[in-house]
């Protein structure tokens, strides 16, 4: 394919020079594609209209490169709507447009370049994009992962303790049975602790963070039970306060294991919730 496509990293407020010297995936030099009249620009590199494919290692390297590029420009512009990996805008290629594509794509009379398509898209969404950028200005995303250690969380459980004591001088058959009971008690005990801890930590984090979005669990250790896995949207000046909350939780609850990551560009909060339903956005309830 000879037509050029654009690989899009993020949408940012247009600040001439903000991409100068920044390189992206595979060392591609980045540029800002300005959309006149909107104040919005797209951070892009010129690419073949072919998504990146490769081994997991290559993907990791490229994702890290993309992240570094977005962070560098984000720090200069103060806000950004980052894209996921492999967002490519291709020129119109009418023969490739499938029959079930939206009408405007099918009806396109003249093929547009990738730049024209992206500019048109940004111009038609400019108000929403600017509003979202403004609401994310001076904010960062933090990631909080909390789990509890199953064994440690049952340490205070009297039933578990007495069963453990009983185990030692029993026959192998009975020991198997008791071990199963012990596992059940530990499971229930850990679940109770996780519920109480979740409610408490969520309450304390929401006093500091502006938004909290839960993510799917990433517990990989069978000895742990997931409590909270969330992305927080936090004012830069409040990042330390989040750390203080987590430090307090760690001190209060010895069974808790805490991972605290960031600050990152607001990857999990860049969706445009003002037009149309968004799967992971905040619940549709009235602010009281």
């Amino acid at each position: 394919m000879t037509e050029r496509a654009l690989y899009v990293y993020a949408l940012v407020p247009h600040r001439p020079g903000a991409a100068d010297g920044v390189t992206g995936v595979d060392g591609h030099p980045l540029r800002l594609l300005d959309v006149p009249g909107t104040g919005v620009a797209a951070l892009v590199h010129d690419a073949d209209p072919t998504p990146y494919q490769g081994t997991d290692e290559e993907v990791r390297r490229r994702v890290a490169e993309q992240d570094a590029a977005v962070v560098a420009v984000w720090e200069r512009t103060g806000t950004a709507l980052p894209m996921t990996f492999n967002v490519l805008v291709a020129p119109d290629t009418p023969s490739d447009v499938p029959a079930d594509a939206p009408r405007d794509a099918r009806d396109a009379r003249s093929a547009r370049s990738a730049e024209e398509r992206l500019r048109e898209w940004i111009a038609s969404h400019a108000d929403g994009l600017r509003a979202r950028m403004d609401s994310l200005a001076d904010r960062a995303e933090l990631r909080v992962e909390i789990t509890v250690d199953r064994a440690a969380s049952a340490r205070d459980d009297e039933r578990a303790r007495s069963l453990e004591a009983e185990l030692a001088d029993r026959s192998p058959g009975l020991r198997r049975l008791l071990t199963r009971q012990l596992e059940q008690i530990r499971r229930e005990s850990a679940e109770r602790l996780a519920d109480a801890l979740y409610a408490d930590v969520r309450h304390r984090l929401l006093a500091v963070a502006e938004d909290l979005r839960e993510r799917s669990r990433s517990v990989r250790d069978a000895d742990e039970l997931g409590v909270l896995s969330a992305a927080l949207l936090v004012r830069r000046s409040d990042i330390e306060a989040v750390g203080a909350v987590l430090a307090a939780v760690r001190d209060e609850q010895p069974a808790a294991r805490i991972r605290f990551l960031g600050p990152w560009p607001p990857y999990s909060f860049a969706d445009l919730s003002d037009d149309g339903p968004q799967g992971a956005s905040a619940p549709a309830a009235a602010r009281g």
Binding site: A5, V8, L11, P49, T50, P51, V63, Q66, D67, L81, P82, M83, T84, F85, N86, V87, L88, V89, A90, T93, D96, V97, P98, A101, A105, R117, L118, W121, H125, E141, R143, A231, W264, Y267, S268, A270, D271, L272, G276
Partner: peptide, 23 residues
């Protein structure tokens, strides 16, 4: 926005939905 590779619409993701967390 559609990228076509070998006649298969590979990344049929709207730009809006693609604004996302790559970590």
């Amino acid at each position: 926005l559609i990228v076509a590779v070998a006649d298969i619409p590979l990344i049929g993701v709207s730009l809006r939905a693609a604004v996302a967390g790559m970590e």
